[in-house]
Design a protein around this nucleic acid. Structure first.
Lengths: 336, 336
DNA sequence: TAACTTTTTGACAACGTTGCCCATTATATA
DNA sequence: TATATAATGGGCAACGTTGTCAAAAAGTTA
């Protein structure tokens, strides 16, 4: 690779002058700027970021450690948001994926440290509570889509309670009276928060207890969660005869659609369907198009970077902890 | 950050000895190894990869530039595969996403060059033909899920023709006789190759032309492709009365399922459905479970890294070009 | 033209490593 | 015990940058 000195030689100036041109420092005669630029062009010179880091002690790198996040399509958007924001701020993201077989967060953190990452973002696949070693205190660290057990890290999560509350209120507002909530596995935080919001809306509207029900569409069998949305939906719809079904995820809403069709009913007419996720093309593919609460992954990714940059800027040894709940947006389509 | 010299001072040895311990070079007395390791532990020392790169001129970094790939869930697997393989080979992947608004591949390539990336992987969202500037000749470069206009880069793509051929043959083998192929937009390479495979199988089985038909489920209107799978499926099924439908993508298969149900028919019994993608949970969510040709994204990602490493090892200035078609796997479930 | 100011340039050290080579010490051999 | 050999340790230059500072060149004023 060509170095700054080779450029200098070709341009007939000192390498320091080349450095000035490269870094757009003022005080170089236009005449010399031209010569240097020509030499750079001719040799195809690129500044060596590593050398620059060694001297400047500034890497402009942010580590992004993900709990399998980048394999799960729903939350790929977090990564995209983070990357976009990082790029805008002149930082580059260094992405590491946890190996699902041997998940070793610390190992990846070490990697980031060796690259002199300025801060760390840890992203989880779904809204949950995670435990971290003290190693994670080394750098400014922000959690996305999860919180730490001890609540001792800045975190960014979707506002699931508000989402549950809001979508339920919308259903009630539109006149639906018998709502079945097919919730996710109650062990996960999202499910708990949404349920809280759901109940709050019910209470606010004074809906009696026999006019709604909550079931779970996921079963944990030997550590693996299995989706039983189909069976549950069938049973709930036949027994409880809801006029609206609120579904924990778009993927499960597909099953709900199929069940409703198979019963000879029509989604949106006989039974309203609402959901959570806004999972890529699915809501648009379904007929009628699915109205769903969009999880704000992209914005969370952006916010994560801006928060971590704030922590970096704040030159304390102990990083202030803040918690952020990002509101979800209802994509109001045609299913209710 | 603590440096090797500080460790040396604490351990009471020269910094060179510390370096030996850190890099596991032989020839350090166990006694000193212990002292050094204690000092490293106590100070929390991490070697500085940037400094190492400057000296060794070896970054162990591979640049991964993606055409929006990481936002599209289907091909996130490419990234995952690449990352896994890179990790196994002691390399780290530096991921960059093309900005869909101002897609500037060269800009990202520059970034990789500045980080002294040893090679580049360019991944596309869907199997297509892409044009590259001469800049891309700078480093060993491998294309995934696309080929270059001039065919002058090593490329890795799914074997769409074989996939089309294979799945069609399976349908014919199982006794289906009237097959409707609801193909993707014919402008994209995947659609063309699959169609070739489809026709080859038809010919091989001597199926007369009036016993199959091919329609397209995507329409390009003003640059935007719109999915018309629902309408097309309805029309084709009603008019042509196929006993099997081969669908260009799992997402569209959802629509086909809904259409079939709505006509009072049963998928797998009255009409078989097959598809391409194996798009995450969708095939498993559908009822009956969707049999689909899995696009081998994960393997393609792995292969990309291993190819780029091969190019790197091969110390030529002009990199040999090879083309790889990765076979697709049929996930044989219940829809045919 | 001289004296002074301002602009432009270059010399050199430093950043944290690794590679090379020589010095010292310990061990084996005569 | 003297000598040869192997094991161990350290000194120092080099990698490609940036930062500091002083030198040189150019411009300004009297």
């Amino acid at each position: 690779m060509v170095t700054i000195k080779q450029v200098a030689q070709l341009a007939g100036v000192s390498f320091k002058t080349v450095a000035r041109v490269v870094n757009k420092e003022p005080g170089v005669k236009p005449h010399n700027v031209e010569k240097v630029e020509a030499a750079i062009e001719k040799l195809g010179y690129r500044p060596n970021k590593a050398a620059s880091l060694v001297r400047k002690k500034q890497s402009d790198i942010i580590g992004f450690i993900s709990d399998e996040i980048s394999t799960t399509p729903a939350s790929v958007a977090i990564l995209k948001g983070a990357q976009d924001m990082a790029w805008e701020q002149g930082k580059t993201l260094m992405v590491f994926n946890l190996d699902p077989k041997h998940p070793n967060k610390d190992r990846l953190y070490e990697e980031c440290l060796q690259h002199r990452s300025e801060g760390i973002i840890y992203g989880a696949m779904y809204h949950q509570s995670v435990e971290f070693s003290k190693l994670f205190k080394t750098l400014p660290t922000v959690l996305v889509n999860c919180v730490s057990m001890q609540n001792d890290f800045t975190s960014i999560v979707p506002d699931d309670e508000l989402a549950g509350y809001y979508v339920t209120k919308q259903l009630l507002y539109k006149g639906y009276k018998r709502i079945a909530f097919l919730n996710l596995n109650p062990d996960i935080m999202a499910a708990q928060h949404r349920q809280k919001g759901f109940l709050k809306a019910m209470q606010e509207y004074g809906i009696p207890e026999n006019q709604w029900r909550i079931d779970t569409i996921e079963q944990v069998i030997e550590g693996r969660t299995v989706n039983i949305a189909g069976e549950v939906a069938k049973q709930v719809i036949e027994e409880f005869k809801p006029d609206a079904v609120l579904c924990g995820k778009d993927l499960a809403a597909i099953k709900v659609y199929l069940v409703i069709e198979r019963l000879g009913l029509t989604v949106g007419q006989d039974i309203a369907v609402a959901s959570f996720d806004n999972w890529h093309d699915i809501p648009e593919i379904l007929e009628p198009k699915l109205s769903t609460m969009a999880l704000p992954y992209y914005e969370m990714g952006r916010l994560a970077v801006s928060q971590v940059l704030q922590l970096i800027a704040n030159k304390n040894t102990v990083y202030p902890v803040t918690h952020h709940k990002v509101p979800c947006l209802l994509f109001d389509r045609a299913s209710f």
